[in-house]
Amino acid sequence: MNPEMLTKWLIRWGGTAAMIAVLTAGAGDGVAQESVAVRAALVTGTLPLDDPNAAAWNNAAPAVFPMSPQVHWPERIQQVTVQDLTVRALHDGTQIAVLLEYADPTEDPDDAAAIEFMVGDKKAHFAHGQPMLLVEGGPVNIWYWKSKDNKGVDLWAKGFGTLRPHEHQDVKAKGEYANGKWRVVFSRSLATDHPDEDAQITPGQFINIAFAVWDGRKDDAGQVIEKGSQKAVSSWWYFRAEPPPDYSGYVYAGVAAVLALGFQFVLIRKLKEGQSA
């Protein structure tokens, strides 16, 4: 194929491929691909453990999760303020920091947000780890923040009515409100001394994560509308603290290629010996 023919071929087939890509992209219903996982990048510098507006967050990949009114158990709620939650995370191999960001038109003392993890190996129902009928479930670990306290609370639950704070409080949280948005950073060490009560985060391992948000605004009678089980919730998604770069795949590939080369060398030498014999 001469260069001119090659150019024509590339234009023809490249153009067709581009058209197909555009057509298939347009075939969707226009909804952006939703996130399935929060990936906490491994950083070498200082983690923004208590700074929701640190520049370091600009380097963390955002994951966006849709939120729903909590309808699984009473008291339900039909409408909630927060529709989407943007989540970023960073870790340094020892500590993890998770930033939640969401639009909320008003800053209220009862504004609150929470992160939920499963504890242990058993699957836990996303609604406070409530018991399942045919599957033995495990507990959940909830990291909770409320605007008026502006601190983290480390909680445990295994079913409705079992929510309680841990005796050991390992979670820190700090929120800052600006321009109609909350930015709340939660932080903790990746591993704790209480694996029966705390989620343990091992770099490289995917674990489940879910979120809840309460808009603390009040109705005309002065009652907080979103409170307790009346909140915005997400389903279970995935969370992973990224592991250090792993180059072992390249090493194995190199060793395998050298072995294959050696095999060829030995084979051809044997064949040549056979021919000359």
């Binding site: 309808v71 129902h125 996303f126 609604a127 399942m132 009928l133 045919l134 599957v135 389903s235």
Partner: peptide, 13 residues
Amino acid sequence: VGLPIEGMPWKSA
């Protein structure tokens, strides 16, 4: 919560 394990009951609302 009444789903068997293959229905992943922990995810259903």
